[in-house]
C-alpha cells in the first residue's frame, strides 16, 4: 500500500461530490482525505484526493473515476513535483502568560496565533502533512482543546496547468442511437 494524491477536475454540477464519494465507498477504496473547491474556471471544480492503495489498484481507481461522466480529467500529483498543503486550526489550552512561548513555537513553523482569550489560543498553520504533524506535536504539550484540519490540496510545480490538457469536448451528432442490427 502506498499513498497517492490525485487531482481531479470535475464539472461543477450538483451531485458530483456524492458520485465521487459513492464510487470510493462502493468499490472499497480508502480515502485519506478529499478536498474540493472552485477553480479558475467557474464551470469546473477541482478535487484533491489522497488515497492509500496498491499500485495496480491505483490504475483501477483512476479508470473507475474516469467513467463518471462529470469527471473531466484525472492526474496523479507526485509529491516532489508539486506543492502540497493542508490547513490546520488548533485551539490550545494556554493562558496569556504563555503567549510568548507559544509564539516562539508557532513562529518556527511559519504559523500564527489568530485568536486568544485568557483560557486558550487558536493557531492557524498551513503546510505539508509532515509539517502540520510536527507542529501538532510541538503545541500538544500545551494541551489541545479542539482542532480542525482541511484535506490536502496540491498543485503541480512549473507553468503548466491541468486544465491545459482537458476541456476539448468533441461534439458528436445526436440521433446516433445504437443502430438496429438484429441477428447480424
Amino acid at each position: 500500500m502506498s499513498t497517492h494524491t490525485l487531482a481531479v477536475l470535475v464539472e461543477n454540477s450538483p451531485g458530483v461530490l456524492a458520485r465521487v464519494a459513492g464510487l470510493f465507498s462502493r468499490r472499497a477504496y480508502n480515502i485519506d482525505s478529499l478536498a474540493v473547491g472552485p477553480t479558475e474556471n467557474p464551470n469546473i471544480s477541482r478535487m484533491t484526493i489522497v488515497i492509500n492503495v496498491e499500485n495496480h489498484a491505483l490504475e483501477q481507481v483512476i479508470r473507475q473515476l474516469d467513467k463518471l461522466i462529470n469527471v473531466i480529467h484525472i492526474a496523479e500529483v507526485k509529491p516532489l513535483e508539486s506543492i502540497q498543503s493542508e490547513l490546520l486550526l488548533v485551539k490550545i489550552s494556554a493562558t496569556n502568560s504563555l503567549k510568548a512561548e507559544v509564539e516562539r513555537v508557532v513562529d518556527s513553523f511559519g504559523a500564527k496565533i489568530v485568536d486568544w482569550d485568557d483560557q486558550s489560543m487558536t493557531i492557524e498553520a498551513t503546510g505539508d502533512p509532515e509539517k502540520i504533524a510536527n507542529l501538532l506535536t510541538a503545541v500538544g504539550t500545551f494541551g489541545i482543546r479542539e482542532l480542525v484540519q482541511s484535506g490536502l490540496v496540491a498543485l503541480e510545480r512549473g507553468s503548466s496547468a491541468l486544465s491545459d490538457r482537458t476541456l476539448s469536448a468533441q461534439s458528436i451528432p445526436t440521433a446516433d442511437g445504437g443502430q438496429a442490427d438484429y441477428q447480424n
Binding site: 463518471l68 461522466i69 473531466i72 482537458t166 469536448a169 461534439s171 451528432p173 445526436t174
Partner: peptide
C-alpha cells in the same frame, strides 16, 4: 430546442 450535437467534457 433539440440539440444537433452533444458534447460532454468528461465522456469520450
Amino acid at each position: 430546442n433539440w440539440p444537433s450535437t452533444v458534447s460532454l467534457a468528461g465522456y469520450h
